[in-house]
Amino acid sequence: MSQWFVLLQKEILEMWRNLKWVWVPITFILLGVKDPISSYYMPQIIKAMGGLPKGAVFKLPPPTAVEIFVKGMGQFNTIGVLIMVLTTMGVIAAERKSGVAAMILVKPVSYTAFITSKWAGSLLLMLFSFFMGSIATWYYTGILFKWIPMADFFGSFLLYAVWFVVAISITVFFSSVLLAPGAAGFISLAVVGLIGILSSLLSKWMERSPAQLADYANQLLAGQSLPDQTWISLFISFVLIIVLLIGSIFIFGKKELAS
């Protein structure tokens, strides 16, 4: 256990030295405030662009706070996931490629601790950044439109977060299976994207997919109660995370560290 904390500490320190603790949260915050602010200033923006032609009737119902908040969270589900995958993709592959993983693993370091500490380090960064970003969305939605109840915010945050943990676990898996960080990132994005697309296209068959958690979070925000599948989705997500981690450790252990 103490070895695991030494490994995790190193991950956290590394992300501090290369400033990931600064720029990832800032990116998420910018991403999060974009929708509330642009929606609020939309009438002014249209006016500044030259306005609408005379006679044109522009009747758009003003967006509700929930709509804006849902749209803001949607940013994290697209660009946010992209950032998460790109910052996580090298976490194991790059160390193995450079050879530093071999330097560390000739020491009596458990493979399980090595992989899970990197997974945990990535999770801490991503969840912190996502929390900062979503709280920014919530705050700006609140001051510019209407306050979303705290409980709804936390509920949807947690549901989204579970889906993001699945996405990061997929990235960690491919990072430990493949040698090239780029390939790991590309395949992880493809897999995460595919799960997302299939879940929304075939929502009937995929209603228990982890990607549906985002949908259920939006239903929660809209004031509906959570469908029963939510719990099954959550359960499937946890199983998937554990399977991915065990798979990463197993396949990584089978590989030769030196070529």
Partner: peptide, 13 residues
């Protein structure tokens, strides 16, 4: 065992 590879690599940071 203690092992030094031919081209040792470290965490540069």
């Amino acid at each position: 065992i203690g092992y030094l590879p031919q081209y040792p690599v470290f965490y540069d940071w």
